[in-house]
Amino acid sequence: MAAPQATSAPAWTPDQPIIRVKDVHKSFGSFQVLKGMSMDVKKGEAICIIGPSGSGKSTLIRCMNALVDITEGSITVENQEVNDPNLDKLKLRRKVGMVFQQYNLFPHKTALQNVMMAPINVLKQDKKEVEERAHALLKKVRLTGKENNYPGELSGGQQQRVAIARSLAMRPDIMLFDEVTAALDPETVKEVLVTIRELAEEGMTCLLVTHEMKFARDVADHIYFTDKGVIVEHAPPEEFFDNPKDERTRTFLGQIL
């Protein structure tokens, strides 16, 4: 999957962690959001990051595609150091797809055009080939028939699935999901989660910031719990939910479950 790349970093091989987060700090002004977080993600893993609001979980995944610069520490994606002033951000972002809470579809473009825009403009791929792929992706997210609808004409769940298809059109190696169901009506949450679950089962490396505990339990390979800028505890889902070790985790799960 990983295309050969001309970087000074040692070539990444699939047996190494695809994402390495080491002691990452991030401050906005004097406010410390991340106070030393570390994690390793293997290729094909589905990771759920949970925790109270303001615990830094969204900021953490935004650092992974350089939407947010980190203040201290190191993040590597396929051995590419993200905390590097000479980083080619665009190259990194071609490998890392991201889906947002507010969908952020381009409202002046149809569903199909939303999916096609990045491959055509960024990757300069052939329009016909991209269009075929876009149709296939919309079919995959069960939106056949909605190709020519504008985002404003789609429900939240449908928009979010277009957003997933739009990210997938770049053929990323990693997908980041930032509370993607938080803005959805309860009845449309499921259709989005089903789509993500299929992606994870196909072997896409997925990192989700989520409040969907049932989903985390069923789909995640590993769960990270964050609070006040640190990772309090991480474990496989059974252990995490059935036998949480830290008091803060127990309190959080007690409130939410």
Binding site: Q102, L105, S167
Partner: peptide, 27 residues
């Protein structure tokens, strides 16, 4: 325009110029 439009374009590896011409100005 919502800042999410810039973020979405950025995360799809659009350059700033591409973002302005293809996504921001048309809106």
């Amino acid at each position: 325009l919502p800042s999410g439009q810039w973020e979405a374009a950025e995360s799809l590896a659009f350059t700033r110029t591409q973002t302005i011409w293809k996504i921001i100005l048309p809106q």
